[in-house]
Design a protein around this nucleic acid. Sequence first.
DNA 1: TTGTATGCGTTATCAG
DNA 2: CTGATAACGCATACAA
Lengths: 342, 342
Amino acid sequence: MKATIKDVAREAKVSTATVSFVVNGIDKVKKNTKERVLLAIQKLNYVPDQAARAMIKKKTKTVGLIVPLLTNEYWAELAEQIQEELILRGYTLMICTAGMKSAELTINSLLERNVDGVILSGRIASVPDDHYIQMFMERRIPLVSIGQIHKEVTSVWGDNLNSSRELVEHLIQQGNTKIAYIGSISTGIGRELGYRNALAIAEIPVDETLVRNGKLEDVHNFSQYGYHTMKQLVAEKCEFTALFGANDLIAIGAIKALQESGLRVPHDVAVAGFDDIAMAALYSPSITTVKQPIGEMAGSVVAALIEQIEQPDGPSMVRKIRFPMTVVVRESSISPKGGYKN
Amino acid sequence: MKATIKDVAREAKVSTATVSFVVNGIDKVKKNTKERVLLAIQKLNYVPDQAARAMIKKKTKTVGLIVPLLTNEYWAELAEQIQEELILRGYTLMICTAGMKSAELTINSLLERNVDGVILSGRIASVPDDHYIQMFMERRIPLVSIGQIHKEVTSVWGDNLNSSRELVEHLIQQGNTKIAYIGSISTGIGRELGYRNALAIAEIPVDETLVRNGKLEDVHNFSQYGYHTMKQLVAEKCEFTALFGANDLIAIGAIKALQESGLRVPHDVAVAGFDDIAMAALYSPSITTVKQPIGEMAGSVVAALIEQIEQPDGPSMVRKIRFPMTVVVRESSISPKGGYKN
DNA sequence: TTGTATGCGTTATCAG
DNA sequence: CTGATAACGCATACAA
């Protein structure tokens, strides 16, 4: 049987209130008594029940994280970092993978468990987009997001626009002018805009047949999406000498497709991705990409969220925190090549 | 303000007990009353408070999952599948990544939150191995594991021994006799034994200089470990024509190292991995590996755990459930080659 | 069929 | 400094 505060009180021959004081570090207990209590706690292996505590304090010390899935290294790392950050501040994390059929059930459990706040990243599947955001806001549950999601929500995100522009400029500097883009709704508009801006600045007209934007829940399989889209591009005999994939998995899938079609990367086609997942450095060829400062972003969202949680009455402005990201040049983009004409 | 059961009762002009009956589907409420209650619930956006419910029921409907990290696709997928499985049965999952410095804090929070059960997979960092297992057992918290961890714990695992034997036999059939092995403490002994068995059956003596076993917490960076170990192997001028990496990331790291040393895979060295993470199929060359039936394994652990949770008095034998796994042959192992002699 | 009363483990408010 | 005791939100035995 699990020991309760009463058991400890009995064991130490004090009242439950005294035990509570000791447990919570409220310093008005005589040293002597305190030690007796501590001893009893240890002897009985007492651990305070968070549920009971939550009832009166109206704080569960729990926050929810909603991500599309965990099998994408980007979100996995985000989740890890956020958990680390939260635990050090005394909070527990509940992760919801919203990409599955059970998304609604999972998110509902956040409500039932009265999380103190929610961190949102990426889109939620199978539900009208703003639905849950509305729900959290109505309930006054502090909400922050990673990536732009809603204008009234404090959010932290990377500067997709400028970094993808830089990345595409790098491709242009390598001598490429026919540059394809493969993105999707869930990779956001910023990266595509950066691509367009870079071309505009270099006065290269955009060939719309080279711009591909998947609409769907390819979120579960970016690599597959990249693979198929590249196969199409090749099948349609599009002319291009470089590809900007809106994330690394898309880029990897595309490289696979290129190689199967007998095209070499970077010799025939230069490729760049986005996010700098670990695999980007490990892939063969290693992939030129943009590194997101995930650790810092995690620290930043957590700080913003906790601030909101712990001073709920304050003005608590909606903030938009943008992080610069850095282009990482690797093998996949840096080689002289003859170009690909089909 | 969040609506409570009292608010609903007042709104519907019934007692709290009646509301509770409706909420819990206890069918002794007149249809008429029931509808009034349902209406009030909807109007007030009432969601029952799990903390309060947990207090009386002594069940939190929460289970903890302890994995080393999430940025390894294997564990990420496991976590996803387990969550899906649990949520459908009305449970919520709390994921602990035990590979970080904060491991103890995280696991402690499972205790504080009174999880109904725990699923354990992989090793826990920074703590004497059995410490937490002991703790859970002492507290009679139902515990199951993925992979062999403790003989008194029900566990589900893949048949590493036989599948890795099959895999190595495949390498032998391809004409390799000098086969290196790179594993680590955290990949378990089974895979190494399978390797040794395959060699024994083929009457190939084991060259111990080709067997590498990292002792440490390389768990965070299998690929890096594979990379460095392969670099060593090459630097030491070891003779081998094939490599069995105890998981796919190790294999990928090793391939990277081989390529940097000017060796081609599979032309000069054949490589095989283990787990069949998504990247195994996407890598270039695609990687021969062993596919773990993660979905089925997840279903199986969850079933076993919930059985233990929901009939805690029953005999509840310790069970060992073994799943067969299948060898997946891909590019990295299938090619005629000249062999590598340094 | 519905309502009343009690207790779950904790903290906070008062007395002492 | 320490001890009683009243909440917190809910489920349930018992009463009506």
